[in-house]
């Protein structure tokens, strides 16, 4: 008996806390991760702001002011990163680029996740023919270099924002679907799933109430880290000339800087690199912390 009461006493401060609440508490104790989290929030707000023409942001980013070319960096806050070949405000362009990058990551994530969940869950839970089919589709996609599919799709379908996001999703879902498939496959035989079935629960209830919530951390972590790969890939697409047209993106800025560097004009390069680097570092650190905090295997609360 003493052992049983002890288990409760030890946790009495945490009583009634769900595993999710415990995970969040764990995450909040990680200072580094919280700093990164707030940086990511700032980026998100910036991205939303960049959708409006606040402070004449969009005008400064897009309109040519040739008499104003190549202003040097760090002169004033408004022209923190100077101006480019056409006299556009590089800071404003980097802010607009934030918008493109974040929305590309968000959109492709939102396309990719339902695909991955449905295919992974169906394959892992029902097995047999459906599983064979899913595994087949995945092995075909894996057999072609991802970047090649993305490039071909964008080249053929056009360089629009949605198509680029779609292309990223088409290659990106496979990894997540595999993880989900494996998790479902195992979860089918978990005793708490069997218990629910003994009570009479149907497939829908078992999938959505018992299995998915217990593997959802895979989805969340992948969603966060998807931004990293999307942003890096966008730079690549920009280099091969297949990123969004007419809108400044970090990739487009870096590519433009290629011809400016020789003449010693570092504005585009500096701004895009700093914006991107800080964002990616924060994503990577936060993503890792999230993975550790959400992992149900880590039982230690302290």
């Amino acid at each position: 008996m003493s052992k049983e009461t002890k288990a409760l006493d030890r946790n009495s401060i945490l009583e009634g806390k769900s595993p999710l609440a415990l995970s969040i508490a764990r995450l909040r104790r990680n200072k580094m991760a919280m700093v990164c989290f707030w940086i990511l929030v700032i980026y998100s707000l910036t991205a939303i702001l960049a959708g409006t023409n606040i402070f004449g942001l969009q005008d400064q980013a897009l309109v040519f002011e040739l008499q104003n070319r190549y202003q040097s960096m760090f002169g004033s806050l408004q022209y923190l990163f100077g101006t480019d070949t056409f006299g556009r405000n590089v800071l404003a362009r980097a802010i607009m680029g934030t918008r493109i990058s974040l929305f590309l990551g968000l959109t492709s994530g939102l396309i990719m996740i339902p695909i991955a969940i449905v295919i992974g869950a169906v394959a892992g839970y029902y097995g047999h023919f459906l599983d064979d089919l899913a595994v087949y589709i995945m092995s075909v996609i894996v057999a072609i270099p991802g970047m090649l599919i993305i490039m071909s799709l964008v080249q053929v379908m056009g360089r629009s924002f949605l198509i680029i996001a779609f292309a990223f999703a088409i290659t990106g879902w496979v990894g997540l679907a595999r993880v989900i498939r494996g998790a479902f496959f195992q979860a089918r035989e978990f005793e708490y799933v069997l218990a629910a079935r003994t009570l009479g629960a149907n497939d829908f209830r078992i999938i959505f109430k018992h299995i998915l919530p217990n593997i959802f951390h895979f989805v969340i972590v992948r969603f966060v880290l998807n931004f990293v790969s999307v942003i890096k890939s966008e730079v690549f697409l920009a280099y091969v000339g297949l990123s969004v047209i007419g809108i400044p993106s970090w990739g487009n800025m870096i590519v433009e800087s290629k011809s400016e560097l020789m003449a010693g004009n570092w504005q585009n390069m500096t701004a895009a690199t700093i914006f991107m680097f800080v964002f990616l570092v924060s994503l990577n650190i936060f993503g890792d912390a999230l993975r550790d905090a959400l992992d149900p295997k880590l039982k230690n609360v302290s």
């Binding site: 005793e191 003994t198 009570l199 009479g200 919530p213 217990n214």
Partner: peptide
């Protein structure tokens, strides 16, 4: 099925943690 129930072996694996 209501009348046929089961108690499982693993006290840790048989309760949904969430």
């Amino acid at each position: 099925r209501k009348e046929l129930q089961m108690v499982f072996q693993d006290p840790y694996g048989s309760l949904n943690p969430r």
